[in-house]
Simulated assay, not measured.
Amino acid sequence: MNSKYSFSLIILFTFYTFQGYSQRLSRDKINDTLEKMPVFSIHKDNYFISGIPTNKEVSSETADAKYQISFKALITRNTLPFDTHLFLTYTQKAFWNIYKFSSPFREINFKPGIALGKPIYNQNDHLAGMAFFQIEHESNGRDSIYSRSWNKVSLGYHTALNERLLLSLKAWVPFKYEDNADLMEYIGYGKLNLTYNIIPNELYIDLMLLKGTKDWNGTLQTRLMYKPFNSSNIYLMLEWFKGHAESLLNYQEKRSMIRAGFVLKSNELNFLKSLPDAI
């Protein structure tokens, strides 16, 4: 599919679902929530998982562990122009050959960024979604022929389609990625996430779709998350990753990996599904 056409579909889908789920928190309650937000909080899910490939022989060379650390920092509690809030974000994803002798790290990807977040309200002055304008740098911290890096300016939109289904869309414009000139052929210009709460606050399924600009390149990632203990935010997670660009170093390689482990789930978008009297 042509990249410009794919981008247009993403934008149209965003506007189409804009008014989707109307039972939202009021503007006053959202402002109160933002004022009480901790300075440091989880950005993306923090996890540790390990597993095996499904498209090649299983061995100590192909089995691995993957973990992610991600957080954000609220720069100021004061509302900025256009009703926005400023954040610093940081995500680090590591691939660890834990089953090999000496257990070396295969690669670590670093992604710092800065983001402006803006609540979007419907005609009843209740929350319809959250929009984010973000500038990010991503690299694997290596040099010479092993160096991989790129930068992007992105626009994201998150909304709850109903009490259980959360939609996230993100489209980006890349820049300064000359060392990986064909990167967009594998990651494209946007991605879609759907998260469905099968059992409220206990069992989730998450689907992420990313389409490259060439042929059938892209990614389909599915995660099943289950919380065994009501008193914590720790979930057990089963992940199936199939596609390209799981890591920067070998973004052209097509992988199919099944991994399991635990995740400290991000709750930064939970308020999108709240009813007006939820807080």
Rank of each mutant, 00 (worst) to 15 (best):
F82E: 07
H43P: 12
T213K: 13
F241W: 10
A278S: 09
E61P: 01
E253N: 13
P38W: 07
Q68S: 09
F175Y: 15
K66N: 14
P81I: 00
L194H: 02
K100P: 02
F101N: 14
F262T: 02
S60V: 09
I199Q: 09
T91P: 01
W96R: 03
S41R: 04
Y90K: 09
L192D: 02
L12Y: 11
T33E: 05
E202M: 13
W172Q: 03
I10S: 10
E107Q: 06
G243P: 01
K211Y: 10
L224G: 07
D45L: 14
S266T: 08
N124M: 06
A65G: 06
F110K: 01
Y226E: 11
I135P: 13
F18P: 00
N55M: 04
N2L: 03
N270A: 07
Y186C: 11
T222L: 14
I198W: 08
K93G: 00
P38A: 12
N124A: 11
L86Q: 03
Q134V: 09
A245Q: 00
A94K: 11
L169E: 12
G117Q: 10
D182M: 10
L183V: 06
K29Q: 07
P228Q: 03
L236E: 04
E178P: 02
K66P: 05
H158V: 09
N162Y: 05
N267H: 14
S6F: 10
Y235C: 03
L207Y: 15
L203W: 03
F15V: 05
P81F: 02
T222E: 11
N124H: 09
F262D: 03
F48Q: 01
G243Q: 05
E268A: 06
I30Y: 01
T79F: 07
R255H: 07
Y196D: 09
G218D: 08
H158R: 06
E35S: 13
F95D: 02
D215A: 06
F110D: 05
L12N: 13
Q68R: 10
S50K: 03
S8M: 11
W96T: 04
N122S: 04
D179C: 06
G243W: 01
K29T: 11
R148M: 12
Y21I: 00
E253S: 13
L165R: 11
I42E: 11
F13Q: 02
D125R: 14
F271Y: 00
H126L: 09
H85Q: 15
L169M: 14
N78M: 07
H158I: 04
I11C: 00
L9I: 12
N197Q: 01
L80H: 03
T62L: 04
S139V: 01
E239P: 09
L183P: 00
Q134D: 08
F87D: 01
K191W: 10
N97Q: 12
Y21C: 01
M184K: 05
T17R: 03
E57M: 10
S22A: 07
V58H: 04
E178H: 04
G218R: 05
L203M: 02
